[in-house]
């Protein structure tokens, strides 16, 4: 694991991708910092950081795109998978290298609140917590990008799908507003989502009896609940899907100075889920 970690990290800084990412992020944050904090005199660095979020969305796919797509294309995955190292360690080694790359600009950001402090009042607690959560959000995006990189051999496709996914998550809150909030609308939406899941189950098991039973059971259950207590469905869709707006936890800190501990747990869970999915995707390819 350590061998892979060291190799990956070195390769990020030899191939310029790492340097470009760090420079890009620090430059843009520096511009925001000059504008908001130094010129306008706003004492919160956390606010500046929320402006850098969009840079993350472009920068993260740049780091994750090559992680597995390149290995597969150059067939170097044969070296890793035939070495006496478990697949989980291979994935973790690569993931930790990417996390380190993202940690570097965040460590540099730690200097910015001190600059504010030198010139007057600073809110160090809020600023440092927001930097930590910003870093954690980066780790969530890395896990998603790494997973998408295992699905393809092409770095370009990995970049575009990751960028698309992160942009979608960024705009998620706005998209949520188009969803129906009435009980009947939510029930239909939920049924549609269940149908998609059942269709996927049918695809992987090719057992249509099982799928039909699942679909019928969920339709009956939903309709029954709707007639007994329709208020359950009100705002259900935006409640369920709204959780996907990961950046909300971060903006909650930068705008309202409220740390949502549930949100932090959500971040850690999403990271775990996507690392697990990455391992499973690679594992599955060996068998098909």
């Amino acid at each position: 694991m350590l061998a892979i970690y060291k190799r990956e990290l070195r390769s990020y800084f030899q191939s310029m991708v790492g340097c470009v990412f760090v420079a890009f992020l620090v430059l843009f944050t520096g511009i925001y910092f000059t504008a908001y904090n130094l010129t306008a005199g706003y004492p919160y660095f956390s606010y500046t950081l929320s402006g850098s979020l969009i840079v993350f969305i472009v920068g993260i796919p740049l780091i994750t795109m090559r992680s597995f797509a390149e290995e597969r294309k150059n067939k170097t995955d044969q070296l890793l998978l035939t070495a006496p190292v478990s697949l989980t360690k291979v994935v973790l080694g690569k993931y930790m290298a990417m996390v380190t790359v993202v940690a570097i600009p965040n460590l540099i950001f730690c200097l910015f609140p001190l600059i504010i402090k030198m010139n007057g009042t600073a809110y160090l607690k809020v600023d440092y917590i927001s930097i930590a959560v910003f870093f954690l959000l980066g780790c969530v995006y890395l896990a998603i990008g790494m997973f998408l990189s295992t699905l393809t051999e092409s770095q370009i496709i990995a970049f575009i799908t990751t960028f698309g996914a992160l942009l979608l998550l960024y705009l998620w809150k706005g998209i949520m507003e188009f969803l129906p909030s009435s009980a009947s609308g939510c029930m239909i939406g939920l049924l549609l989502m269940i149908s998609v899941v059942v269709f996927y189950i049918w695809q992987i098991t090719s057992n249509w009896i099982l799928s039909a039973v699942l679909e019928a059971a969920s339709v009956v259950a939903c309709v029954a609940v709707y007639f007994v207590k329709s208020s359950v469905f009100e705002n259900l869709l935006s409640g369920l899907l709204g959780k996907l707006a990961f950046a909300d936890v971060f903006t909650g800190i930068t705008q309202n100075h409220i740390v949502d501990m549930g949100g932090i747990v959500l971040y850690l869970s999403v990271i775990t889920v996507f690392i697990f999915l990455t391992v499973q995707t690679i594992q599955k390819r060996r068998w098909s």
């Binding site: 061998a3 892979i4 030899q14 191939s15 150059n74 067939k75 044969q78 070495a83 006496p84 190292v85």
Partner: peptide, 23 residues
Amino acid sequence: PELPPLYMDMTVSEYLEFAAELK
């Protein structure tokens, strides 16, 4: 393997040291 699994951005000795650590 049929196609040697080489990392193009490494030197020969770096690559072999990496492989030794990996093994």
